[in-house]
Amino acid sequence: MLTIDNLHAGYGCVDVLHGISFSVPKASVVCLIGSNGAGKTTTMRAISGMIKPSRGAVLLDGQDITGFDAYRICRRGLAHSPEGRRIFANLSVTDNLLLGAFPRFTGNRSKGDVQGDLEQAMELFPRLRERRQQLAGTLSGGEQQMLAMARALMLNPGMILLDEPSMGLAPILVEEVFRIIADLRQRGVTMLLVEQFAAAALSVSDYGYVLENGRISVHGPAEQLRDDPAVHAAYLGCGH
């Protein structure tokens, strides 16, 4: 589905990523874990076109999308639920969801049944149905996260990037978010997940990559990584 080859990217003239390669097969969940500043979010941003890679290639469904503007990548069916959620705070919940389906209104993606999908999204996230007329900014942190995820689903995407869905949430909501991710995985949604909570992220993934200083240090099937002492070391600095 998605193939990343020798990706270099960063901000200004300073690269944060120094050559990352991995791929996400169709209908699987891959997670990127690593400490803060390792380059997880930068990887996501470079894939979805929020920043331009300085070197390397990004392939979506075998087609080169390296350096495309974000809106063009989205129109090809890659949804990105960004770090910090980035919902539109002064628009209603419904409007946020409809905007998630924007390319379907403009004919850049097949329209299908937008209203039906809206209903389905609200079924998946019942809290959103209760609050569909409210301004998104008045939602609690957990509800905002669900909105961000639902908004990404509204594209009818081929693949979703989920960046730190648990950030800033109370632990009980973190669990809820991971339950939803597991649910989406059951439905066969292709996902690339970035998380600080390594253990939880690995429990809902098929495969994991550990980023350290802009490079992949360890990778392997998710169950295997969970018990890897090197993963613990990367987080807490013990074990050296």
């Binding site: 632990p171 998380e195 939880a200 987080y235 807490l236």
Partner: peptide, 15 residues
Amino acid sequence: RVIAAYLGGEATAQP
């Protein structure tokens, strides 16, 4: 609690 805050999941992360 620190391990929970960083690694998440395993321990109960109740602050």
